[in-house]
Amino acid sequence: MKSATFGEVFAVREFRVLFGSFALLVGGDVIKMLALSVLVYARTGSPGLSAAAYMAGWLPFILGGLFLLSLADRMAPRALMVTGELIRAVTCLLLAYAGLPVWAMLALVLVTGLFSPVFFAARAAMLPEVLPGDAFVLGRSLLNVVSASAQIVGLAVGGVFLAFAGPSGALAATAGLSAVAAVVLRAGLPYRPARGAAGAGAVRETLRVNGRLLSDGRVRGLLLAGWLPCVFLAGAEAMVVPYLGGQGQAGVVLAAAAGGMAVGEFAVGRFAAPGLRERLSFPLAVLLGVPWLFFATGPGIGWAAGLAAVAAAGLSYQLGLQRRFVDSVPEEVRGQAFGLQSAGLMTGQAAGAALVGGLGEVIAPGPAIAVAGGAGVLVALALVRVLRPAPAAVSRLEQ
């Protein structure tokens, strides 16, 4: 299989639209959750409620992933994505100016968040349709790079908006970004029909297809390979703040991790040939855990940032799984398959943060980070048969 290039990927108009709107989505969501957290804290003075507000947009992901994902295949993808942006815009305006009590603000974010995995699934499933062959994997890597970059930029821009316009102004700006993204999607994407036909209710169909996907050994193995190593990465990152004593230095380490992820995705996606990319999945998954082992020695902020960056670069192991995942799932449920992949990843990261956080209470943050790294290495070794593709499959890619 011939390696794709950036020029070939960006020459596709639909990808440019997906790329630009995704950057607006990620950056806007970061600003929204940061502003909501500040707004809740200003009203209540409660650190716990402020933290709950920051996480509220992600908590419903598991429920939406379990019960609503079939909508990603039963509705036209452009309409779904535009609807998602408009819902986000209206939500931000209500949070900013409706004068809602705190409980109603959190409830609004939770309810609208139930549909987030559906909107994400529609976008992810459209990517292999507009970028065939190796271009799909390179496009996926570019979206991962822009995700990491938009998170960093979103935090910086959000801080500026909060300083000059307050949380309501920042929320209004996020609503504007969502409105722009909706226009870009509506004007830039052609109409594509739904992949699947409407049948049973959305909840029943979602449960049925999730069961069908998880009962397939090949699909289940690829899903677990995409989820489990990231559980312990998230757990290690969740311990960075307490490891550094709750100081602002943690932001440097977490920003370094985001930068390492972006560099790894860019390098592997662009410069590794398709066959090499799949062979790299196993060693890169191991790399995801190894650097965290050195936190047992108590590194300072400089070494901690470097170790976090190297570990996060290992996230590019997932690029070697993407082609096989697309080939393994039936086209008519591709949207739900990508949604299940994302929902499981979000759930696993939350579970990893909780597990390693609890361990940190018992044995201190540094050793807990090292344990998380060791567990990540062991998981990668246990998944070696999935992470390491069959030689015959790799040979076909290199022909």
Rank of each mutant, 00 (worst) to 15 (best):
A273L: 09
V362L: 15
G352S: 05
A380C: 04
E278D: 11
A311P: 03
G373M: 10
A305D: 15
R323W: 00
A313Y: 01
A368C: 04
E361C: 01
L321K: 07
A267P: 00
A311T: 04
G289L: 15
S316F: 01
W303A: 15
T297G: 15
A372F: 09
A309L: 13
V379G: 10
A285F: 05
I369S: 05
G335K: 13
L340W: 06
E265P: 01
E361L: 14
V379H: 07
R324V: 01
S281M: 14
F338H: 14
L315Q: 09
V268M: 01
A375Q: 06
A267E: 00
V333Y: 11
G348S: 01
G275V: 01
V290P: 14
A354V: 12
T347M: 07
R323Y: 00
G373F: 12
Q336C: 12
A382C: 13
S342P: 00
T347W: 02
V333Q: 07
A312Y: 09
F294E: 10
G269S: 05
A273S: 10
T347V: 01
L307I: 15
P365I: 05
M346I: 06
P274M: 05
G360Y: 09
A368G: 03
R324S: 09
Q318E: 07
F295P: 07
P365F: 05
A273R: 09
Q318S: 02
W303H: 11
L383I: 12
A304G: 15
F282C: 08
G298H: 09
A296K: 07
L381M: 13
L378E: 09
E265T: 07
P367I: 13
L287Q: 04
G314C: 09
R270V: 06
R323N: 00
R277P: 00
A313T: 00
G300Y: 11
Y317R: 00
L381P: 05
R279A: 03
A380P: 07
I301K: 11
L287S: 08
G357F: 00
V268E: 01
A343R: 04
V263M: 11
L276S: 00
A308R: 15
G264T: 09
A313S: 03
W303Y: 14
L321R: 08
V371S: 14
P283M: 14
P299F: 12
G348M: 02
G366H: 02
V326M: 06
L340F: 12
V290S: 15
I301R: 14
G320N: 03
P299H: 14
A382T: 09
R334L: 15
R334I: 11
L321I: 08
G339C: 09
E331S: 14
I363R: 06
L315N: 07
P330N: 14
A354W: 12
V362F: 06
V290E: 14
D327R: 14
L288Y: 02
G264D: 08
G360E: 08
E278H: 01
F266T: 10
A337W: 12
A353P: 05
A309Y: 06
Q318G: 08
A351Y: 04
S316D: 00
R277N: 00
L381Q: 02
L319Q: 07
I369H: 06
G374H: 09
L340V: 13
G289F: 10
V333E: 06
A337V: 10
V326W: 05
E332G: 04
G264K: 08
V326R: 07
G275K: 00
P291A: 13
A364Y: 03
G314P: 07
G376M: 09
L287H: 03
G300E: 12
F266W: 10
P367N: 06
A343Y: 06
T297C: 12
R324W: 00
F266H: 04
